[in-house]
Design a protein around this nucleic acid. Structure first.
Length: 638
DNA sequence: ACGGGTGTCACT
DNA sequence: TAGTGACAC
């Protein structure tokens, strides 16, 4: 029988932490008068009171539900406080919730591996922390354990109200418990402390589940809300699962949807317990090897999924819908909305670069549309993507091109009226910039340092900026803003003074450019100027790479005047600063003059042709823009 | 003519 | 790969 995945089966301690009606809490913190009142967060208040996206527990008592309209909510709960989601650039702006989420993650990630599952949920692998606690300061010797730990719900612990807490205390302190249960007890204490800390430092409450795997932890965190935690000892697993409706089983392969229906209808499986009646082979036969095995395992409460070590999202996106009569019918209106969306996206990826040194490589446009009585009026509007170039204007430009291309496919030469009902743009394939690899200048000089290197700080400042006598931003900006487009860039005059640079003795293995790098390092330090003679004047640079820019130059021009709404001043300032420290180079493949490449040393030629090749062999659309960052930051290994 | 905006994953 | 579709909060 095929085996889908080997399972690492040491007992683990996994926690799932879920913020309680998070957006509401964020708004209540912002405006404390709302605390304790029935409250909901709503967006677009103008139409039927807007749509609810988060509902406080006080309001839930009245039957207010997410996805009600504001008006409906008022009906069942006249006193409900409706708070609008902030709006920026004509669309909902969720940034305040994102950053609040980050505050929480920063605290929760301190005791073990932490996976940000969504804006308001994380998984923690507390196995190590629990083990060391057990061996060093087990519960019974602990002087104080937080109230929150004693308030844990322990599944399978039959507890009457009056002596519940006593039972829990006993359970936590049991000397003769399973090793596994003892670990869970430690996990519960650790989680309790974390939750207290989160509350103290952020004013947010959360709920948590503590169990031996992600699935059970997630299940548990939802069982007692808000502001409580639930422990799932392995002895209670079968009981828990046997009565659990399949549709409630939510993790990864969500059973809430089609798979859940199929299980019920095709196999008569209503609870997870019912799944036990089917062999792994049978389930694989019905649902494929992976899903089949997964089902077989969850029925036994043994999902081995690891907690990923990831504190940040894998993509950034923003979008807007234009329902019915609001549908966009002209390319001009599409363009203007696209511009708004791209502005936001650009800001967010720039922030990510600034804060986290991460570069996004792919820009994708998703669109929904209808066609007015075309023959196949249902045809899907295709998604399109292309390499992502940094800089608001470039993103806007590329996005519009993606749209044009998609629209062309959509219409397939018919001439029919159309309406765009939603637009969304996203940045994905994000990878970290290992320190030492973010500068093309350094690459060409053979200066690429490994992250081990001690005397190269994390923050890379291009020689041209840091050493140039006229080092300042003002210099760059002024030059750029003036008409003298041919003289501006900060990478002027980086000559002579690198002759004394030490050459790195350690190639960065993550680069995928190791070969040429290795050769480089044995030679004299390289300068991009040597390869593109005369490129201190940007006309030559243009000949080499077309409009090769450092994005911050444009950013300084385009984004300075228009202060982003609130609280971003600081961020913007820092962003500009790091933008100057990182170079994200953009060029148009079509603009590259092949003859310039011939002037390069052979191994560099090979490298550059490699970039061009991989850029050109993309579709018509995608080859239009490319970013050197695309090639210089390693693509995350698969 | 609406649960909107975001995010992740599996599959082809 | 790029592109689709499903699903969750």
């Amino acid at each position: 029988m095929p085996v889908a995945r080997p399972e690492p089966q040491e007992p683990r301690v996994i926690a799932h932490v879920d913020m309680d009606c998070f957006y509401v809490q964020v708004e209540q913190r912002k405006n404390p008068e709302l605390r304790g009142l029935p409250t909901a967060v709503v967006q677009y208040n103008n139409w039927k009171g807007g749509g609810l996206i988060a509902v406080s527990y006080e309001a839930r008592k009245f039957g207010v539900k997410r996805s009600m309209r504001g008006d409906e909510a008022k009906k069942v709960c006249p006193d409900i406080q409706l708070v609008q989601v902030p709006v920026a650039r004509g669309k909902a702006d969720l940034n305040s919730y994102r950053s609040a989420g980050s505050e929480v993650v920063a605290i929760l990630s301190t005791k073990g591996r932490c996976e940000r599952a969504s804006i308001d949920e994380v998984y923690l692998d507390l196995t190590d922390a629990a083990k060391s606690m057990l061996s060093e300061t087990p519960p019974e010797v602990l002087e104080s354990i937080p109230e929150e730990a004693l308030k844990s719900k322990v599944l399978g612990l039959n507890s009457e109200d009056d002596d519940r807490e006593k039972n829990v205390r006993e359970w936590l302190f049991r000397r003769h418990a399973d090793y596994q249960d003892k670990l869970l007890a430690c996990g519960a204490i650790i989680v309790a402390r974390l939750r207290v800390k989160v509350l103290e430092e952020t004013k947010f409450t959360c709920s948590a589940g503590i169990a031996h795997n992600k699935m059970l932890a997630k299940l548990a965190s939802a069982m007692h809300k808000p502001a409580q935690q639930t422990v799932v000892p392995s002895s209670s697993v079968m009981d828990l699962l046997s009565s659990l409706p399949v549709k409630k089983m939510i993790i990864r392969k969500q059973l809430g949807g089609k798979l859940g229906c199929s299980l019920q209808i095709d196999l008569g499986v209503n609870t997870i317990g019912d799944l036990l009646n089917f062999s792994e082979a049978k389930l694989q036969e019905c649902y494929g090897i992976n899903t089949g095995t997964w089902l077989w395992k969850i029925a036994r409460g043994t999902s081995g999924e690891e907690v990923e070590d990831r504190l940040l999202p894998k993509s950034h996106g923003c979008g807007k819908t234009f329902p019915g009569p609001k549908a966009l019918k002209t390319t001009a209106s599409v363009r203007s909305w696209l511009n708004q969306l791209c502005e936001e996206l650009s800001e967010r990826i720039q922030f990510d670069l600034d804060q986290n040194k991460r570069v996004a490589h792919t820009l994708t446009l998703h669109t929904n549309a209808y066609k007015e009585n075309g023959v196949d009026s249902q045809r899907k509007f295709p998604s399109k993507s292309c390499p992502l170039r940094y800089g608001t204007a470039k993103i806007q430009d590329d996005a519009m091109k993606l749209f044009d291309s998609a629209l062309h496919d959509f219409l397939s030469s018919q001439n029919i009226r159309w309406g765009i009902t939603s637009l969304s743009i996203s940045a994905s394939k994000i990878s970290e910039i290992p320190s030492g690899t973010c500068s093309i200048l350094k690459f060409f000089r053979g200066e690429n340092s490994s992250s081990m290197s001690s005397d190269n700080s994390d923050v890379l400042i291009p020689e041209s900026i840091s050493k140039s006598p006229k080092n300042e931003n003002e210099g760059c900006m002024a030059a750029t803003q003036s008409d003298n487009v041919d003289q501006p860039a900060c990478q002027e005059k980086e000559n002579e003074n690198h002759s004394n640079q030490t050459v790195q003795d350690k190639a960065n293995p993550a680069q995928g450019i190791g070969a040429s790098q290795k050769k480089l390092k044995e030679k004299e330090p390289y300068s991009i100027l040597k390869f593109f003679p005369g490129s201190e004047s940007s006309s030559t640079r243009k000949r080499a790479f077309g409009d090769l820019n450092q994005d911050h130059l444009e950013r300084n021009q385009t984004e300075q005047q228009e202060g982003p709404s609130e609280g971003c001043d600081d961020a913007t300032a820092r962003s500009n600063q790091t933008a100057q420290q990182h170079e994200i180079w953009n060029f148009n493949v079509e603009d590259v003059d092949p003859s310039v490449i011939d002037e390069l040393p052979l191994e560099i030629q090979r490298e550059v042709r490699g970039w061009l090749h991989s850029a050109t062999k993309r579709t018509n659309m995608t080859k239009r823009g490319s970013s050197i960052a695309h090639y210089f930051s390693p693509v995350k290994k698969t």
